[in-house]
Amino acid sequence: MSIYKEISKAIRITFILWLLTAIIYPLFILFVAQVPFLKDKAEGSIVLNIKGEIIGSALIGQQFRSDQYFHSRPSTIRYSQGKQGNPTGVSGASNLAPSSPKLLQRIVEEANLLKDEEIQPTADLIYTSGSGLDPHISIKAVRQQLDRVARARKLRPDEILPFINKYTEGRFLGIFGEPGVNVLKLNYALDLDEFNRQQNR
């Protein structure tokens, strides 16, 4: 077999592989992503407020400091606002060793803040997640904050419980992990409820 036939064969194989990986596969994934029950996730699970403004993604944790909001899991990630108003940041943990004085200091500070708010510290209210992007906290962590949020919003705890139940997500495939509450969805639902109550007065 001549060298020219080998070169021709290599070019054809390269072209076929390029066609499969650069054209057909991406178009197939794009098509699958537009299936109705996947479309929201494929587009980033963006959450909009009542004005149609982007307030975040249901897939990415955010920091809430006001007493009116349930606090999310601590994160080593700090987001800045880019030119388009979209959060930017890099996923990852702090990589601090368990013996690190800096890590110990941060944990003590978080525990003291919770103690000042009369909240029993739970692991997910003190320790950061591995990715730094976890949008969920445990049901126990939410219940620990219930009284504080209810006082700040001038509501009874039992008026907030239906929202907690609504935004509690079960185990993945029914067996993996633990149930968790999506903090952004919960906090926004409470804001929306407050807005509707004010409109009805």
Rank of each mutant, 00 (worst) to 15 (best):
F28N: 11
F28R: 06
I29K: 12
I29A: 12
I29E: 10
I29C: 14
I29R: 12
F31T: 14
F31P: 00
F31V: 07
F31M: 10
V32R: 01
A33W: 00
Q34M: 12
Q34Y: 07
V35G: 00
V35I: 15
V35D: 00
V35K: 05
P36L: 08
F37K: 10
F37D: 12
L38M: 06
L38Q: 00
K39H: 12
K39E: 13
K39N: 13
K39D: 12
K39W: 05
K41H: 01
A42M: 05
A42G: 05
E43R: 13
E43H: 12
E43C: 09
E43P: 04
G44W: 02
G44E: 05
S45L: 08
I46M: 09
I46K: 11
V47P: 05
V47W: 05
V47D: 06
L48M: 12
N49L: 03
K51T: 09
K51V: 04
G52V: 10
E53I: 07
E53A: 12
E53Q: 15
I54S: 11
I54H: 07
I55P: 02
I55G: 01
G56Y: 07
S57V: 11
A58V: 02
L59E: 13
I60H: 08
G61L: 06
G61Q: 06
Q62H: 09
Q62S: 13
Q62K: 13
Q62V: 02
Q62E: 14
Q63D: 11
F64T: 05
R65N: 14
R65T: 15
R65D: 13
R65A: 13
S66H: 09
D67Y: 02
D67W: 01
